Simulated scan of single mutants.
Amino acid sequence: MGAWNYNPWENVEAADWFQEFWKQQNFAVLINEINQFDPTEERYDAFRAACYLLQTLGNPYIWPAEHLAELKPLIQRAISILTQMIDPTNEDWGFLDMWGGSADVIKAVEEQVDALKTRLGELA
């Protein structure tokens, strides 16, 4: 897996995703990572990296105006998927297996969900 710790930027897959995002300098990379998420592809760490930027930059005063209409549904989808990752409803979700069911990674994902819920509240 190439993970150094539990934060959404502390693994090889996330580092590669961040590099691609900044190389392209295009919010479509972030939006597509979240909207096209498929648990069977097991891009959990790239997804969490995209969610980290969403929770950090997903403020209506920061978020690009051309993607503003997508912000609320994107945050809602991110919350739903992150929640499924730590409380899966079927066997397609292998995130917890990849991390050995670690309580630390569950806590880290819960913190992401909380941050996204805060962002969602800013949009209300």
Rank of each mutant, 00 (worst) to 15 (best):
E10W: 07
E10K: 06
A14G: 10
D16G: 10
D16T: 01
W17H: 13
F18V: 03
E20D: 10
E20V: 04
E20S: 10
E20M: 09
E20Y: 07
F21E: 12
W22I: 02
K23C: 08
Q24G: 03
Q24C: 08
Q24L: 12
Q25V: 02
F27E: 09
F27R: 14
A28F: 03
A28E: 00
A28W: 00
V29A: 10
I31D: 00
I31P: 00
N32E: 15
N32C: 04
N32K: 14
E33R: 14
I34D: 01
N35G: 04
N35M: 06
Q36M: 05
F37T: 01
P39V: 00
E41R: 09
E41S: 06
Y44I: 00
A46D: 06
F47Y: 05
R48E: 13
Y52R: 11
Y52C: 09
Q55S: 14
Q55P: 08
T56P: 05
T56G: 06
L57M: 12
L57H: 07
L57C: 11
G58H: 02
P60E: 01
Y61N: 09
Y61D: 15
Y61V: 00
I62M: 10
E66G: 07
E66H: 08
E66N: 13
H67K: 11
H67S: 13
A69E: 14
A69I: 07
L71F: 06
L71S: 10
K72D: 13
K72R: 15
L74T: 08
L74S: 07
I75A: 08
R77F: 02
R77P: 00
A78P: 15
M85E: 11
D87Q: 14
D87K: 15
D87H: 08
D92R: 14
W93D: 00
G94D: 09
G94S: 13
F95V: 12
F95P: 03
